Amino acid sequence: MPYCPDCGVEIGNAPRCPLCGSPNPKAVPDAQNPCKDADITGKHPAANIIFEGGEGIFSKEEKRTVLWEVLSVAFAIAIVVLGAVNLFESRRLSWSLYPVVSILLLWVEATAFLVLKNMQVLRIVLGAIAPPAFLLALGFVSGSPRWAFGLAIPIAVLVESLTGALVLAIGKSKRKGLNLVAYVLVAVAVLCIGLEMFIDLFARGVVVFDWAPICAIALLPIAGFLLYLHYRVVKATNLRRLFHL
């Protein structure tokens, strides 16, 4: 059995070593070798388009487009199958609407992140609108949109707003360290207060703070201390010298 002259791997009649790519001196002649047109990657030319350096290589944009097209076709097939099964079983669309709405949400998000990469504003707007629209659609599908308008959508908008504020604050920070943890703690405190407000308004019609202020009281002083360490102590001196470590 032939072995690679460079690394000693058993390669049989392969034209090149699959490990190091060295030519096989004992390979079958080109006239009898079905892989005679193999390129330097050791792959058949038909597969060369997926390897860097090949003549037909896909760019990153083309790969994202192909992935989006594959996902779109797969999602379309899934929607058709779900609808057909539901109609065959119940003679009307019922339970299939829930997975269909979920699939549409995934498709919109995939479109925003795969196709609209160079259109940042539209990408952000579409990605932000999709979750509240999904929750609203679920409300109408379930026949009770009240919980979507009164609870789900406000919470989704709050989470997205806090996430956007966190990303903006992190991006604007010249020095990143303990301040990032502080920003997260502040966001969690605001989220807790917002959650209790929306839940109380939906369930009682009036806001009666109970647990959210306790969470905020516990988190905000820690965030303030971390900001103090980051912007005052760490900047002014070395923590190892400060604590004699």
Rank of each mutant, 00 (worst) to 15 (best):
I222S: 08
F58A: 10
A46F: 09
N238C: 13
G150I: 00
L136F: 08
A169F: 08
P154H: 04
A133T: 10
G224I: 08
R232I: 05
S142L: 05
L219D: 06
V188R: 08
P15R: 00
L135R: 01
C35G: 03
C192Y: 00
L201W: 10
L245A: 06
P131R: 01
Y228Q: 01
W107D: 01
N238K: 14
I57V: 12
P213M: 01
A78Y: 01
A76Q: 12
C17I: 08
K26E: 15
Y228A: 04
G143L: 06
R241Y: 10
G177T: 01
G21Y: 08
R232A: 07
V234P: 01
K36G: 10
K63R: 13
I40E: 15
R91H: 15
F202R: 01
T41I: 00
P213Q: 02
A152M: 08
I155D: 08
A148G: 14
A182S: 15
F243S: 04
A212E: 08
Y183F: 15
I199R: 09
A74T: 14
P5C: 00
A47W: 09
A76H: 12
I155C: 11
G224R: 05
V234K: 06
R241K: 12
L82N: 12
G56E: 14
D30V: 11
P5S: 00
F75N: 02
V85C: 03
A223V: 04
D37T: 11
G8A: 02
L135N: 04
L105F: 07
R123N: 11
I193T: 06
Y231K: 01
R92D: 11
A218P: 13
L162I: 11
